[in-house]
């Protein structure tokens, strides 16, 4: 547990979090390893977790019938994976699959949701942090949509 606490405390995503909140988070956290090809979560399932990737790479993908899986974005070392646990109705919209052996810290979102309801200060801190993540994803998606290299340098 001490090890997990140190890792979370040092992770930029949790920087500046009050000690008691960090403690709560540690209480919801555990280590996990995904094998290459293993699904981290599935589209449509209840979204009850989020992940801090410590090593490896995860593809956020969707399956198109007759076409196969399409990778939308990849998440790797140091990044946070998953925010549906915080947004009603708490369901995954995409599949996540480990592209290689991936070690991650799993945080129990369901448990955290409850704690956020009880302690709005914690809830606000989580909202602030996840809004950053959501905004970054939205921006990246917008740039992706622009298909910027269509008119790249000649």
């Amino acid at each position: 547990m001490e090890n997990l606490e140190r890792i979370l405390a040092e992770h930029p995503f949790f920087a500046g979090l009050a000690p008691q909140h960090l403690k709560l988070l540690v209480g919801c956290a555990s280590n996990m390893v995904f094998k290459e090809g293993q699904f981290v979560f599935h589209e449509g399932q209840e979204a009850n977790y989020f992940y801090i990737i410590r090593h490896g790479k995860v593809a956020v993908e969707t399956f198109i019938p007759q076409k196969g899986p399409i990778v939308i974005q990849t998440r790797s070392e140091g990044e946070v994976l998953g925010w549906s646990w915080l947004v009603h109705p708490y369901r995954w919209h995409f599949d996540a699959r480990a592209m290689e052996v991936t070690r991650a810290i799993v945080l129990d979102g369901k448990c955290l949701r409850g704690k956020c309801e009880e302690d709005h200060d914690l809830g606000y801190e989580m909202m602030k942090r996840f809004t950053q993540i959501i905004a970054a994803r939205l921006e990246a998606t917008r740039i992706q949509l622009l298909d910027v290299y269509g008119s790249s340098k000649g």
């Binding site: 790479k57 593809a59 990778v71 974005q73 990849t74 990044e79 990246a140 910027v148």
Partner: peptide, 15 residues
């Protein structure tokens, strides 16, 4: 058979 990163190049900067 691309097994590398997917996402715009700007997402690589942060990490």
């Amino acid at each position: 058979s691309w097994r590398g990163n997917v996402g715009v190049v700007t997402t690589l900067i942060g990490r």
